[in-house]
Computed example of a mutant assay.
Amino acid sequence: MKHGSETNAEVLAEEKEILSEIKKEESLVRQEGVAIKRMERNMLVFMILGLVLAVGAIGGGIYWYITSQRIYVDMAYVQAPLINLSPVHGGTLQDVMVNIGDTVAANTVVAQVGNELVKTNIAGLIVNTNTQLGTIINPGQTVVTMIDPTQLRVVGQVDENKGLSAIRVGDPVVFTVDAFGSKEYHGIVDEISPTSRQSDVVFNISDQRPVEQFDVKVRYDVRAYPELKNGMSAKLWIYKSS
């Protein structure tokens, strides 16, 4: 009887040992699985991080390239050259026949000074008038000011040390007008002023040397953008062609 009991005990002991070994192996398998998953997760994180850095580097490079190829001008206005109408002979301002905002044809009488009728030479838009009837007007003194809307340009003021030397006539331009938010308009550089705006000198604080500003005029299709009016403020992005 004892011999049988000892045999059963040995069998039970072996079974326990086998179960213990199985549990150890299962534990090792689980640990290896966790380690593999952790490794895979870390690899995925590193891959995503690398991709983000690569995209950031590419995006930064593209941004640098784009910004290096254009010149930003934050002070610009839609303008046309002013046409001043005045009498050849002086006299009393008898009458002004037009108002600001009127569109007039060529050879339109706009004012009378003494016995002289002041007329337009071309069609255009009235932008200013002298309304002080009865005052004495000298020869050549302006009584009415007009513009030719077909000559509207966007005129930007560019500091001499902020890319002026890189701007060329014919360079493409994208501009926005404050009155119309982020809507983009297109034009080309039409003229670069040969002289600075000496009345608008800006001083560089670091060395107190004056920084001159130059007018850069941008031509656009006035028929395509009839909403743009004389005097509107704008911003320019001039794209360097070379």
Results as ranks from 00 to 15, higher is better:
His3Pro: 01
His3Gln: 09
Ser5Tyr: 06
Lys24Phe: 14
Leu28Thr: 13
Glu32Met: 08
Glu32Asp: 02
Lys37Trp: 06
Glu40Val: 15
Arg41Asn: 00
Met43His: 10
Leu51Met: 06
Val52Glu: 06
Ala57Val: 13
Ile58Gly: 04
Tyr65Glu: 05
Gln69Asn: 02
Gln69Val: 01
Ile71Pro: 04
Tyr72Ala: 05
Val73Leu: 01
Met75Lys: 15
Ala76His: 12
Ala76Val: 15
Ala80Met: 08
Asn84Phe: 12
Val88Thr: 09
Val88Glu: 09
His89Ala: 08
Gly90Pro: 09
Gly91Pro: 08
Thr92Trp: 04
Thr92Gly: 03
Gln94Thr: 08
Gly101His: 06
Ala105Thr: 12
Ala106Tyr: 13
Thr108Met: 10
Asn115Arg: 15
Leu117Lys: 02
Val118Thr: 04
Ala123His: 04
Asn128Leu: 15
Asn130Tyr: 14
Pro139Asp: 02
Gln141Met: 06
Val144Met: 01
Val144Glu: 01
Leu152Tyr: 05
Arg153Tyr: 09
Val155Asp: 04
Gly156Ser: 03
Gln157Trp: 12
Asn161Lys: 15
Lys162Glu: 01
Ile167Gly: 00
Gly170Ser: 04
Pro172His: 06
Ala179Arg: 09
Gly181Tyr: 10
Ser182Lys: 13
Lys183Glu: 11
Tyr185Met: 11
Ile188Lys: 14
Ile192Tyr: 05
Ser196Tyr: 00
Ser199Phe: 10
Val202Ser: 11
Asn204His: 07
Asp207Trp: 12
Asp215Asn: 14
Val216Glu: 03
Glu227Lys: 03
Asn230Trp: 13
Ser233Phe: 13
Trp237Tyr: 08
Lys240His: 00
Ser242Lys: 14
